[in-house]
Structure formats: structure tokens, C-alpha cells
């Protein structure tokens, strides 16, 4: 199986058959699948965005002054856009692969392994869209009551930005899904990578690295690009260079991570 086949499987009907299977499960269980996880960013927003706002002066962002709650609103979109697909492709995919043997059943059909991987990537990214939509609804309500000051019309674009970045995050997570010996080992990608990345990517506070190396690393960090693109759209109606940055950093992650996760999954599931 070549790298090109691993990548082009995204457009194959088989990938969408796997996606559809996951979507149908979600629709059967949407109350438990959506409400509790979607509350996490909302609680973060209330606690940090509103709670801290009283103690933090307005922030200067690209020459404009904004309150902390407005700053965090975009950060929460990025936090959700990263966390939801990342954890979906870690835990939920691992359960399907290892405990439920769902992938074994699918691979006994016409569906090939790259399509199983892409079905999981696409589904995780769409899960991110769902949760981002809930966060955006909350932000819209807070805008109406004056807690935040955002361009509400641009909230409709947030789920689509999240889908783009979500594909990268999911493909990255599937690498760990393929290699961890047991579900307990998910602690490594969660606490050593996921948590730090989601907190220090201009999500809850601005970071302005002085080091050239760190600046370069930030440019290829999709969480940072997602946060800044969302913030630019919500505050100015203009993402600046960060929409291109989001697309570029996503591709930079998505291509090698998809190829690698497909190879590692082949070794894990098929023993090849």
C-alpha cells in the first residue's frame, strides 16, 4: 500500500461508509455523546473567561483592545477544535479497534485499511465541528448579553475551520492509537502532548516567543493557527495570515501523520 493510496483513500466510498457507521452510533447516543463533553469548554469559558476577566485588564490584540472573555472565546474554539478530534481518535478509536473489534469486522468486507483510518479521521473532525458549534452557540449568547464582543456572523465559519484542523489532530492521535500497548498508556499522548498543546497555543493567554526557533514552531502548530484565525475573524472579520497558516500547518501534519498512522495500524491490526 503506497503513501498515495493511503492519502487518496479519503475520497473513497469506503472511508465514508466507515464514517457513516460512526455517525449512526453517535446519533443513537447523542445525548450522552454530546452534552457532557461540550460542557467542558463552556465551563472553562465561564471559569476563565468570565471569572478571570474581572482581574485582568483588557488585552491588546493586533492594535485593538479587548476584554479577556472576548480573547478566550476564540481560544475555546481552538481548544475544542483540538481536544474533541484528538480524544475521539485516541480513546474512542482505540475502543473500536481493541475492545469491540469493530475494525476487524469491517476489514473482513470490501473496505481496506486506509479507508478505516480515513473514516476515523473524518469522523473525529466532524465530532469537533459538532462541539465547536455548541461552543459557538454559547459565545453568541454571551455576545448578546454583553459579556463578549465578537462578530457573531463569523461564528458560522468556526466549525469549518475546526474540521480542517481536526483532520490533522485526528491523524496525529491515530499514531498513538496504533502503538499504545494498553489504554492506560493513552496518558502519555494526553498529558504530555494534548494538555500542554491545548493550553499554550494562544488559547487562554497570548504567547509571544522571543526565540526564532519557538516562533517557527508556533507557525506550524495547527492549534495556534486555529486560535489566531478564529480570533482574527471574530474580532476583525479578518483572519490575517492565519487561514493560510491553518491550511499549511494542517497539511504539514495531516500528510505524514496519515501515512504513518496507516502503516502502524496495519502492523497493529493485520500483523503486517
Amino acid at each position: 500500500m503506497s503513501a498515495a493510496e493511503s492519502l487518496t483513500a479519503a475520497f473513497h466510498w469506503q472511508s465514508w461508509a466507515v464514517f457513516r457507521r460512526n455517525a449512526l452510533v453517535f446519533l443513537r447516543n447523542w445525548r450522552t455523546a454530546v452534552i457532557p463533553p461540550a460542557m467542558e469548554p463552556v465551563i472553562f469559558f465561564v471559569a476563565f473567561g468570565i471569572g478571570f476577566s474581572g482581574y485582568i485588564e483588557d488585552l491588546d490584540y493586533r492594535g485593538a483592545q479587548m476584554n479577556y472573555a472576548t480573547y478566550v472565546a476564540a481560544g475555546l474554539i481552538a481548544y475544542t477544535g483540538f481536544g474533541t478530534p484528538y480524544y475521539e481518535a485516541l480513546y474512542a478509536a482505540y475502543v473500536r479497534m481493541f475492545y469491540q473489534k469493530t475494525w476487524d469486522g469491517i476489514l473482513a468486507t470490501q473496505v481496506e485499511l486506509p479507508s478505516v483510518v480515513w473514516g476515523e479521521i473524518l469522523w473525529a473532525a466532524v465530532r469537533g465541528m459538532v462541539n465547536i458549534s455548541i461552543v459557538c452557540s454559547v459565545i453568541a449568547v454571551f455576545d448578546v448579553i454583553g459579556v463578549v464582543d465578537v462578530k457573531v456572523a463569523f461564528l458560522v465559519f468556526m466549525p469549518f475551520l475546526g474540521f480542517i484542523a481536526g483532520c490533522a489532530f485526528a491523524s496525529f492521535a491515530l499514531i498513538f492509537t496504533a502503538i499504545v500497548p494498553a489504554i492506560d498508556h493513552m496518558n502519555y499522548p494526553v498529558f504530555l502532548i494534548g494538555w500542554p498543546l491545548s493550553l499554550v497555543s494562544n488559547t487562554f493567554f497570548p504567547i509571544d516567543p522571543q526565540s526564532v526557533v519557538l516562533r517557527a514552531l508556533w507557525q506550524i502548530n495547527p492549534v495556534y493557527q486555529l486560535a489566531e484565525a478564529a480570533r482574527g475573524l471574530l474580532v476583525f472579520g479578518d483572519p490575517g495570515p492565519h487561514l493560510v497558516g491553518l491550511l499549511g500547518s494542517t497539511l504539514l501534519f495531516l500528510v505524514p501523520c496519515t501515512v504513518l498512522s496507516t502503516r502502524l495500524t496495519r502492523r497493529r491490526v493485520l500483523g503486517e
Partner: peptide, 11 residues
């Protein structure tokens, strides 16, 4: 029909 039970218990 594999030996292992790979039914989809979500359905």
C-alpha cells in the same frame, strides 16, 4: 465469518 465476535454492539 471470523472466529472472534466482531458484532457491532452499538446497533
Amino acid at each position: 465469518c471470523t472466529q472472534e465476535d466482531s458484532l457491532d454492539y452499538d446497533f
